Amino acid sequence: MRRTRPQADADAAGAVVIAPVLHRLAVMLEAGLTPDRAWQHLADSGDTTARDVCSRRESGLELARAVAASGGAWRDAASAWQVATTVGAPLARTLRSVADALREAEQTRDDVRVALAEPAATARLVAWLPLVAVALALVLGFDLGATVTNPVGAACLVAGALLMLAARVWTRRLVARAQPSDSVAGLSSEMLAIALSGGVSIPRAEEVLATVGVSPGLADRDVLALSATAGAPAVELLRATARLERHRARVSGRMRAAELSSRLLLPLGVCTLPAFLLIGVAPMLLSVMAGTPVRL
């Protein structure tokens, strides 16, 4: 269920496409079509993923594995599909639940990306500030080339360049740390709800989830304990927990984006502004002190 970073963009883009496809499959299954027939109808309508799935099915691959082979968020859908078919849970309801979870996860990622766009763009713009100072000095007529031969001037340029590099690395790490997660929040709760909706026991549901690489989290076990104590339906409680986890993920992402604006002031004050002084201001002062004429 985990994804590597090189696939992040493809997975995120795929989630937008997968949700409508899963809803179409759910509608056709509710109309009485078999899963294979539903996939074939999608393939005939021009869906490229459905064509690939049907092609793999013709080669003898199991349907859930054929879906998972499409990669990206399809692996999550395939895992839910496999759990539902194993325990006998309603497949159409399962597909709708997974589609909603994927759509909400993508909306969360979109919200965080939009919130991060402004501080990230500002950080990139400020990073060029020392070079702007150099251009300004050249326009004013200072002979900055003469400062390179001066040991103090050369040391200033080297120190300023190192500070610019440090600021760029620091800023990039801060922005990367604030990026939204590639995982789908509340997925373990959703999968456990799917398994239990098939009428199996909790130990059996955990065994089935283990076959697709999912294990119930601490929140899921708290919900199961609450269900046993209060006599409330565990499936609905788990689905409510999944929605709550997705809401928390959205709020957490927005908070990280808001905090990024203030955290970016650290590399600005510690690295970028000193680099501005060392690369832009110090050579001009050395040029004046050395008596280099200024060409206006």
Score class of each variant (00 low, 15 high):
L224F: 08
V67L: 09
R57S: 14
P6D: 06
E190K: 08
T108E: 11
R93A: 15
R246F: 13
A166P: 07
P267E: 09
V16P: 00
R239Y: 14
Q107Y: 06
L102N: 12
L125W: 08
W81E: 03
R3N: 07
L278C: 10
R243E: 13
L266R: 13
A127G: 07
R37S: 14
T229V: 12
A68I: 00
L260R: 01
M1V: 11
D36G: 15
A228P: 05
R248S: 13
L22P: 10
R57C: 14
P233M: 09
Q7M: 07
L277G: 13
I194M: 07
R96N: 12
M255N: 08
I279R: 04
R103N: 11
R250D: 11
V214S: 00
I279S: 08
G186K: 08
R57T: 11
F142T: 11
D44F: 04
R246H: 13
L165T: 13
A137S: 12
A249K: 03
W74S: 08
A89D: 04
D11N: 02
W74Q: 06
I18Y: 03
L238G: 14
T292V: 14
S227T: 04
P180F: 05
D44T: 09
C271S: 09
V184K: 06
S189A: 15
T34K: 07
L129Y: 02
M255K: 08
R246V: 12
V158S: 11
S197N: 08
V132C: 14
L63G: 03
A15R: 15
G160Y: 04
Q7G: 06
A176E: 12
V132G: 14
V152F: 15
V175M: 06
A185W: 02
G231T: 04
